[in-house]
Design a protein around this nucleic acid. Structure first.
Lengths: 215, 215
DNA sequence: TGTACATCAGTGAACGCGCGTTCACTGATGTAC
DNA sequence: TGTACATCAGTGAACGCGCGTTCACTGATGTAC
């Protein structure tokens, strides 16, 4: 699965063990959240001593950073695949929702409560902007809706994040709204704020998506 | 501040110490997130032994639940006050944003990553629906926009959460969109996903609010 | 093909730490007569 | 007003726990000649 071109048996073995550590780590995160992740517990599950993990990661923080990177990477790949379907922003929306529901704690590792003082390394920030670029591409391909809001002007004046992308300000605005609205539904849904309210979050998500596409 | 009608000196003293424990607890949460909250650390800061806190709370979980309740309560009060200004949903939006920015970790305690398996007690759920009711009132007071979406139909058929509120389905839909869109901007902003992007989150928030009011 | 050496995955004991929680207690504050 | 008693906030020692991390080591795997 994560065959990083390992040639020798030793390299293959290492890759395998690394992958298993990551799997167990995800299981723990899924079960009890990222703050409950414990190196010793992972080692125990694998039948190894805790110290052995230091052959594979420099420590707990590095492992978590790696998982965060893996989460971003999986979203970027999912997005990339969806964008190649050619179905535009709607395809991205459904891909995003599918990805989020697949593992809510993975979603929260990326979009949930930040740990004060933590800063993601640059390569992770790069993946984040890769994701935004895919979204921008999809929005730029839509036909313009004619309206120009005051926020368009502001965004046009602060388009550093678009990183040279030729999209018109309207597309930037749409990409941002797309992003914030879908995350609004998703984060409330996954955090359980809709449970007991009766309506179907999937329909609310679809309604927001329809509204975004209509303008 | 939290004078719960304490008569005797002893009661007044207890209320005072309880309040100070809560204060220190909030300081810790603000500084390092809720998962870092430690009874012993609070006691240390107050110059007491850790065991002393058990005179005031049954344990760590009860203290956290109390803080969650306090956070909900403060948002409900903020919302109530804003609704009395008579300025409608826009006033609520600005109140929500102000409340969120005032203490991002308090915001995340309510709307951030859920702890798997945790269920808030009923009285907290009640405060949550109190908040929704205030929002619903404000949306019901708006003039109808005439459009009826398919989601309106769904929501009309699942309006249990509106708890007997006489608002028309359109108002329900608007309240939900208001809620999810503003949280979409806020949660991404507070989690730092806009940093480095250049634009002003406040303007994005305002743009979303304007869009909500326009329809 | 066989031997000498190097690499390296994993062990197990240990360190120091901080945590939540309990318990028998002390001493100050408040109450009843 | 004074005395006997009850209440109760806070202490300090202890328990058991699990954590991340280090270190000197063993033994298996791989490499060079």
């Amino acid at each position: 699965m994560v065959d990083t071109g390992a040639r020798t048996p030793r390299e293959r073995y290492r890759a395998h063990v690394r992958a298993e550590i990551r799997e167990r780590a995800w299981e723990q995160i899924t079960a009890a959240g990222a703050s409950a992740l414990s190196l010793n517990a992972i080692a125990r599950q694998m039948g190894m001593s805790g110290a052995a993990l230091y052959r594979y990661w420099a420590g707990r923080d590095e492992l978590i950073t790696d998982l965060v990177r893996e989460a971003y990477r999986s979203l970027a790949d999912t997005f990339r695949a969806a964008s190649e379907s050619g179905a535009g922003p709607a395809a991205l929306a459904h891909a995003l929702r599918g990805w989020a529901l697949e593992d809510p704690q993975r979603y929260f590792l990326v979009y949930g409560t930040p740990v004060p003082g933590y800063h993601a390394p640059d390569d992770i920030t790069l993946i984040a902007s890769e994701i935004m670029t895919i979204l921008l591409d999809a929005c730029a391909a839509l036909s313009p809706d004619g309206t120009a809001t005051p926020f368009d002007t502001h965004v046009e004046a602060h388009r550093a994040w678009a990183d040279g992308h030729p999209a018109p300000p309207e597309a930037l605005r749409r990409a941002l709204a797309f992003w914030t609205r879908l995350h609004g539904v998703l984060s409330l849904e996954l955090a359980g704020h809709f449970t007991g309210m009766g309506f179907d979050p999937a329909l609310m998500f679809a309604a927001e998506l329809a509204d975004l596409s209509a303008h």
